[in-house]
């Protein structure tokens, strides 16, 4: 069996980011942290996409994670980064556990549309909830780490450092999960559920588990995004946010747990560079790159790296 180089590669990237972070300009630190937050959501979508499911409503869990973190600050004045992320992850995971009983029965377009409907319900609720700032949302408290509040210049680096470590752990765990029998079942579920059933496994149960994992990751990403940006609003649950996550998932490909983070970073770079150069055509650049990837790199950008290794 080939040795898995992923953990080592991940560790190297993490070390590099932690070492370079203090010297990097603030905007790159911000870009990177947001990419890590979105990468976590996409990591979850990748797990679902591997068994053929595309959720057009993953923004639901992104938003729940963000609002869970925001509410903790608003109501109980909690500002510890790890507590907020844990809260985001648990809130989303628990919601997905309940909704999973329904959604794990759905496939293809119908899975996507039902997810979409549910995320839009949350959007509709938040927009009309004045206590939570309606469509304007609200600001978060400045983050702390273990009760310690760093100097302003270091806050961004601190959040980045936490994000990198959290993303590293999440990626390692998912990498291991993908190699368990349940994780490996994904392409089989995608190809032929009848056969999965007649091999003695429940596709519905496997999908439910994957759905909860994906949601927990999205919640984690949402809480992280909230602490990074310092502001949350209902737009986080809108369908265009889900569209963006799917965009990155397709761009990245499902080949490896590093791909989602790389995809999110490339997305962030395209978005900010294109927006800087021409604010009225950045969506055109994004749309065209998505078309090019779907047509020429159906397995995503990651297939550029794994070429030759794959059969």
């Amino acid at each position: 069996m080939r040795r898995d180089l992923t953990p080592r590669t991940l560790a190297l990237i993490v070390a590099a980011i932690l070492a370079a972070g203090p010297f990097a300009p603030q905007w790159t630190v911000f870009l990177l942290t947001v990419a890590l937050a979105k990468g976590l959501v996409v990591l979850g979508l990748m797990i679902l996409l591997r068994c053929g499911l595309v959720s057009f409503g993953q923004a639901l869990y992104y938003c729940i994670g963000a609002y869970a973190a925001g509410l903790l600050g608003l109501r109980y004045e909690v500002s510890g980064v790890f507590t907020l992320m844990l809260a985001g992850m648990l809130a989303s995971g628990a919601t997905a556990f309940v909704l999973g009983f329904l959604l794990a029965r759905y496939r293809s377009i119908f899975f996507g549309l039902l997810s979409l409907a549910i995320s839009m319900i949350l959007y509709g609720l938040l927009v009309k909830t004045e206590a939570l700032g309606s469509s304007d949302g609200f600001n978060l408290l400045p983050s702390t780490l273990a009760g310690f509040r760093p100097a302003d210049a270091w806050v961004r680096y601190m959040v980045l450092a936490v994000a990198v470590v959290v993303a590293f752990v999440a990626a390692l765990l998912v990498n291991r999960y993908l190699k368990t029998p349940l994780g490996r079942l994904a392409p089989a579920i995608k190809d032929n559920e009848i056969r999965v059933e007649y091999m003695g496994a429940s596709a519905r149960h496997a999908i439910h588990v994957k759905y909860v994992i994906a949601a927990a990751l999205a919640g984690l990403g949402g809480a992280l995004a909230a602490t990074t940006v310092g502001h949350i609003d209902p737009e986080m649950a809108y369908w265009t946010t889900s569209g963006e996550f799917i965009f990155i998932t397709i761009l990245a490909g499902t080949g490896n747990v590093i791909a989602p983070f790389l995809g999110a970073l490339i997305f962030g770079i395209i978005q900010s560079v294109a927006f800087d150069i021409s604010p009225n055509t950045w969506q055109m650049v994004l749309g065209s790159s998505l078309l090019v990837v779907i047509v020429f790199l159906p397995n995503g950008l990651w297939s550029l790296f794994s070429r030759g290794k794959a059969s």
Binding site: V54, I109, G112, G243, I246, F247, I250, N280, T281, W282, Q283, M284, L286, G287, S288, L290, L291, I294
Partner: peptide
């Protein structure tokens, strides 16, 4: 569906 989503993004800017 994703292809039409990409086209939607392009048309928004067109």
């Amino acid at each position: 569906l994703l292809i039409t989503y990409a086209l939607f993004l392009i048309l928004e800017d067109v």
